[in-house]
């Protein structure tokens, strides 16, 4: 089903359909995360990928035309880059340790400590929350700061465009 959604995204020239299909793709991805027992990630994917970004894309679609512009250059170079990157990523997965094996590095390092001690030390039955907010508090603080910085950046960019356009319009009116 995800492959069908991606094929639809590639084939469709109507941007509204593309936005909806990418929302569906995100929901399918969230389902995959649930199957993998990563409920927190699934929740984030459903909320951000399917909900928030779809809404923001729709808000942008209200500003631009909803048909894709025809290509002005040959798509061969982008296709080569995509295939190379995809091929390298697939090649990288070949040497990954087997999925879910107990001897894997990520199951041997700090994870057992978290699983054994998080309830005793933090009183939180959800290990993910304990790791995010307590053991790895620095990382989450950094993450929040990234969201803060990103939001401020977008706002500065958009408000800059708006004031410039307003000034431009005012100038045009005074010229006339």
């Amino acid at each position: 089903m995800m492959i069908v959604a991606v094929y639809g995204i590639i084939r469709s020239r109507n941007l509204f359909v593309v936005v909806m299909l990418s929302g569906i793709y995100s929901f399918l991805m969230a389902t995959v995360m649930v199957v993998l027992d990563a409920v927190d990630v699934a929740m984030t994917e459903a909320a951000v990928g399917a909900g928030m970004s779809t809404v923001l894309m729709l808000a942008v679609l209200g500003l631009v035309r909803s048909r894709e512009a025809p290509l002005r250059h040959s798509p061969i170079l982008p296709i080569i880059v995509c295939c190379l990157t995809g091929g390298m990523l697939i090649y990288g997965t070949v040497s990954l340790p087997p999925f879910g094996h107990i001897d894997n590095p990520q199951n041997q390092h700090v994870a057992p400590y978290y699983i054994e001690n998080s309830v005793r030390e933090t009183g939180s039955p959800n290990v993910v929350t304990a790791v995010l907010a307590s053991y790895r508090g620095y990382d989450t603080l950094g993450e929040t700061t990234v969201i803060f910085t990103g939001g401020i950046g977008v706002l500065v960019l958009l408000s800059g465009v708006m004031t410039r356009r307003r000034r431009f319009n005012n100038q045009k009116e005074s010229d006339e």
Partner: peptide, 30 residues
């Protein structure tokens, strides 16, 4: 620990929700 996690999560909540909303206002307002 319990209290700390709750407070910190409130901080994340405040920043995330207001950032998302501000970006939406910026686009939708335009």
């Amino acid at each position: 620990q319990h209290l700390g996690i709750l407070i910190v999560e409130v901080g994340v909540f405040v920043t995330v929700s207001s950032t998302m909303l501000a970006i939406f206002y910026a686009f939708g307002g335009r």
